[in-house]
Amino acid sequence: MSMTATEVTVKLIRKGTTTVKKIREVNLRIEELLRKLNINPVSVVVFKNGVIVTEDDIVEAGDVIEVHSASPGG
């Protein structure tokens, strides 16, 4: 039985932990996705299916998104 993906997997990598969320909204820009998750695009780097993309790339059903935060420290 074949299944059509209808959601996006988002992995939030920050403060030493990875949180996984499933998002039903698709065909939106990475920037819009981030703002829906209350994340500022200025402070993160995003991978889409294993490659780094810009906030203007489009998220499609079945995509795996990884959001890497620029942690403060020193």
Partner: peptide
């Protein structure tokens, strides 16, 4: 910028744990 630095770091395949100093949020800088 911070974002450019993280992008360069990840593009080069460098690794460091993505953790935050537990006292960072006490500072005005935060």
């Amino acid at each position: 910028t911070d974002k450019e630095s993280l992008t360069f770091f990840l593009l080069n395949g460098f690794e460091t744990p993505r953790i935050e100093c537990p006292y960072a949020s006490l500072s005005l800088r935060y």
